[in-house]
Simulated assay, not measured.
Amino acid sequence: MWKYYALLSALFAVLTAVFAKIGVKDINSDLATAIRTSVILFITWGIGFAGNYTAEVKGISGHTWIFLNSVRYCHSLRIIIGALLITGGSIVMLIK
């Protein structure tokens, strides 16, 4: 059964990439990312409320909060450094 889930996951990853490219052709890519992130945030909190998981937030340990925030900061830094590398590469190409 897991093979079917893996295929469906790959299919939806492809569809996500295609729809994201189509969706950002007329608007700023940062705005598109903010919109997609907001939609995902809304959906995941909806799942949390529907499953009544929100009561478990009080029981999350300090260690877990540190780990979750570390992941968030590392992800943010990866995006910032990637953007700087892309921008720097563009500048280098213009100079040459």
Rank of each mutant, 00 (worst) to 15 (best):
Tyr73Asp: 12
Asn69Thr: 13
Val24Ala: 14
Ala10Asp: 00
Lys21Pro: 05
Phe42Ser: 10
Ile91Trp: 05
Lys3Val: 12
Arg72Ile: 12
Ala32Ile: 01
Ile60Arg: 01
Phe12Tyr: 01
Phe12His: 05
Met1Leu: 13
Ile43Val: 13
Trp2Met: 07
Leu31Arg: 05
Val92His: 10
Ser38Cys: 15
Ala13His: 00
Tyr4Thr: 08
Val18Phe: 03
Gly46Gln: 04
Ile47Ser: 11
Ser76Ile: 08
Leu84Met: 10
Leu8Cys: 10
Trp45Leu: 15
Val57Met: 02
Leu7Tyr: 05
Leu31Phe: 14
Tyr53Asn: 10
Ser29Thr: 08
Leu68Lys: 14
Ala10Asn: 03
Thr37Ala: 06
Val14Lys: 00
Phe67Tyr: 11
Leu77Glu: 09
Val92Ala: 12
Ile43Gly: 06
Ile47Asp: 05
Asp26Met: 12
Leu7Met: 11
Thr64Met: 09
Ile86Ser: 06
Thr44Met: 14
Phe67Lys: 12
Thr37Gln: 00
Ile43Thr: 04
Ala32Asn: 01
Gly59Leu: 05
Ala20Glu: 04
Arg36Ala: 15
Lys96Thr: 11
Gly46Trp: 00
Leu41Val: 13
Lys3Gln: 11
Ala32Thr: 02
Ile35Gln: 02
Ser61Gln: 06
Arg36Lys: 14
Thr54Cys: 06
Gly59Glu: 10
Lys25Cys: 08
Trp45Ile: 15
His63Arg: 10
Gly46Thr: 01
Gly46Asp: 00
Ala55Gln: 07
His75Asn: 12
Lys21Phe: 07
Ala10Met: 08
Ala55Phe: 04
Ile22Val: 14
Val14Trp: 01
Ile80Asn: 05
Gly59Pro: 10
Ile60Phe: 02
Phe19Thr: 11
Phe67Thr: 15
Met93Cys: 14
Ser76Cys: 07
Ser90Ala: 13
Asn69Glu: 10
Gly88Met: 11
Ile95Cys: 13
Tyr4Phe: 15
Ile35Met: 05
Val24Trp: 04
Leu15Gly: 03
Gly51Trp: 00
Leu8Asn: 06
Trp45Phe: 14
Leu41Asn: 07
Ala32Phe: 03
Asp26Trp: 06
Leu68Asp: 15
Ile35Phe: 00
Val24Met: 14
Ile66Pro: 07
Gly46Pro: 00
Thr37Lys: 03
Phe67Met: 12
Thr33His: 05
Asn52Asp: 09
Ala10His: 00
Ala34Gly: 11
Val14Ala: 03
Ile60Thr: 07
Val39Ile: 10
Ala13Val: 01
Ser70Asn: 10
Ala32His: 02
Thr37Trp: 01
Ile81Tyr: 01
Glu56Ser: 07
Gly82Gln: 01
Val18Ser: 02
His75Tyr: 12
Leu31Ala: 14
Val39Ser: 02
Met93Pro: 15
Leu31Tyr: 11
Ile80Ala: 07
Phe49Thr: 08
Ile66Cys: 05
Gly89Asp: 03
Ile95Trp: 08
Ala32Pro: 01
Ile95Phe: 10
